[in-house]
Design a binder for these strands. Structure first.
Lengths: 229, 229
DNA sequence: AAACAACAAATTGTCGACAATATAACTTGA
DNA sequence: TCAAGTTATATTGTCGACAATTTGTTGTTT
């Protein structure tokens, strides 16, 4: 049962790693569930060799935990890990914003202003709030990260951390978040970057992420208490 | 040729990953060199299966880069990557120091003061400067990281980043560094933590790492110009 | 009935062999 | 002599099978 369109890639191992990542982030493989090598190998129609390499990769991404001679399990989302992850994100994206304040070229700044204007228009028309919340939000953050010019930082944030972050956001329908407030904060951050105020950009980015983290925490607690009722 | 004492571990793959990490960090496998799977498998007396899993793990640690159908190469140290890495470290350890300022228990603070006193004594006796520089330095930093209480941060810094950091320090004999100055800075950081001044602790830790980074940069430039002469 | 021991089944870890791809060596033509 | 094309070699990617370990089951004993 090849349940996902197979993205052509150089090697089977990469393909599977990508597909497994998506499957986990989107919840097709539920959190806390065991990864059965024979079962998955049969599902994807491959042997266990490349599958195991993919699982090792996922372990590096922090999406699964492995125990010798026992196997791999999808991570179990919980509030503490979320807070820990977002604290790291705060430090790293704060630094990215600081760097971007000195390295982001003028035209890219204008592009980002245009992006925020588009978000504003979407919100004013009261259409597609969800778009601004999800894709738009990521877009803004990713482009600041890339503007940092720090290759290591870019790789860590976009390739390693963001899988888990997206997982947390997807699994907690954060209806609490106020897109208009987020947009205001984005604008303030961009202003600081445009003015080359690194200190301020870092401070604002940290606050912005910290606030998102607190909202997520509330949502998770609410979900947890609802589940236990 | 089993050239390293084999550390007993649950799985061959883990063993090999550990041994390869050491071999790379200590330069037994030179930077930029190609990783030949058949050759290494023969050297360690294992098959290519677990070896490949180990290599995938090393790729996650950023110690090797892999290209499909071509193979793995040990990373090539260069100034830009070093600066990028230390910038990340600055952000992350700065955050760790901030967190430690509110979470580190009193007795652990005392332990760290005792550690610094020991370093001071070593320096005053003019003996074993090297010890203070290498092992002692890491000790201090690692214990602050652990005191942060942030499991994700601890894992990232100690298991992923520090391999590369140690590699940079080892390959550039940083005789420039002034152990006494470093010790003063350590003391100031610890004072801030003891006083629960998170802002200050973060600021000082950042400066401390930034300074180390600049010294390393000078050492690398000097080494580079000496090599081209 | 509960706890423990012995056994059975299934899963993970490891291996050697084959297929696919890339690199090196060689040949041919201008 | 050099360039391009072709063959040969070596290395990586993948597979199926076996060994080692864990987990689940059954049976026995107190």
């Amino acid at each position: 049962m090849n349940n996902l369109i197979s993205i052509k890639s150089a090697t089977l191992s990469e393909d599977i790693a990508q597909q497994l990542t998506n499957a986990i982030v989107q919840g097709h493989i539920p959190q806390g569930s065991k990864i059965s090598e024979p079962e998955l190998a049969k599902q994807y129609g491959i042997s266990r060799g490349p599958l195991r390499e993919a699982i090792v990769k996922l372990e590096g991404l922090g999406l699964v935990t492995r125990t010798a001679n026992v196997g791999a399990r999808v991570i179990q989302l919980n509030t503490q890990d979320m807070l820990d992850t977002f604290t790291m994100r705060e430090a790293l994206e704060g630094m990215a914003a600081r760097l971007a304040a000195t390295t982001m070229p003028a035209d890219e700044i204008n592009n980002l202003y245009a992006l925020l204007d588009k978000h504003q228009a979407h919100l004013d028309a009261n259409q597609d709030e969800h778009y601004v919340q999800q894709g738009g939000n990521d877009d803004f953050h990713l482009r600041i990260i890339h503007a940092s010019g720090n290759a290591k930082l870019i790789r860590l944030l976009t390739e390693e951390l963001y899988a888990v972050i997206r997982m947390y956001r997807r699994h907690t329908s954060d209806q609490r978040s106020d897109p208009r407030q987020a947009l205001r904060e984005h604008k303030a951050i961009l202003d600081a970057i445009a003015n080359h105020e690194g200190d301020l950009a870092e401070l604002l980015m940290r606050r912005h992420i910290s606030r998102a983290s607190k909202l997520l925490e509330q949502a998770m607690h609410q979900a947890a208490s609802a589940a236990s009722r």
